[in-house]
Design a protein around this nucleic acid. Sequence first.
DNA 1: TCGAACCTTCACATTGGTGAGAGGCTCAAG
DNA 2: CTTGAGCCTCTCACCAATGTGAAGGTTCGA
Lengths: 138, 138
Amino acid sequence: MRIGELSERTGTPRRLLRYYEEQGLIVAGRSPNGYREYDEHCVDRVMQIRGLLDAGLPTRIIKQILPCLDKPRTIYFPDATPEMIATLEHERDRMTDRIRCLTRNRDAISAYLEAVLDDSCRDTNVDTHGDTADPSPS
Amino acid sequence: MRIGELSERTGTPRRLLRYYEEQGLIVAGRSPNGYREYDEHCVDRVMQIRGLLDAGLPTRIIKQILPCLDKPRTIYFPDATPEMIATLEHERDRMTDRIRCLTRNRDAISAYLEAVLDDSCRDTNVDTHGDTADPSPS
DNA sequence: TCGAACCTTCACATTGGTGAGAGGCTCAAG
DNA sequence: CTTGAGCCTCTCACCAATGTGAAGGTTCGA
């Protein structure tokens, strides 16, 4: 597929796709006419990239870890230098930290939300926002 | 405590603490001489802020959700406008997405790491790095 | 009085992401 | 064949957000 389709299917501006390529996050083949040519796999890849960026990982790191995560092992073990291993372990740990932090805070939000919702059902007679006085009784 | 101690205890540059205050993420009292005065609670708060920032949340959102998460309920339900509720629900969902994304990728990294480690134990006879030719057989 | 810690403020760096323009190629439909 | 949509390159500039550096001045404690 070409850039337009990839853009639509991933909800990502064309401009940004070229930017990701420039940053080395994705690679695109080329048609004889010079058009970028993407395979199906790229759709997932772009979504993955966006997700990771959104989760706070810098492109530099994403670029390093993505090749290790391809379904058919693109990068093999000989390429795994000790420092690469170290980087991966470090990033894995940082991701675990992030997950912990997010989970804790999300659960706290959920708890708050539940408390508020629960509360607003209980006292609908307060004048805070007098509408919806509909406890649906009996 | 003053900014220096908070800085040390949170591993955060003084400059950055002032920045967070400027962004409305933390509030500091003032001594008569103008020095910022922090209470114990700030240590956790700063760590929480750093964690959330690192996990991709913008200060704008953090500023909104933090007050809802204080241990002794600082913000009460009357303040919970419908749009605030909506924001919280939305952010909670985004956080869930992030958690999913991070978990998936972290597990993939773990799997890769495991495979590599496992592999480097198994074939130490390859000339890739010919040392440790110690298959410890029979 | 000296130095460490604090203050404010201005400016800068980096990162992720956009916008626009120039200049040109390709392809399909009218 | 022409027209227009979509693509190409390249460039320059810009944005917001997070985070730093440094200058110049005050306060505190030894």
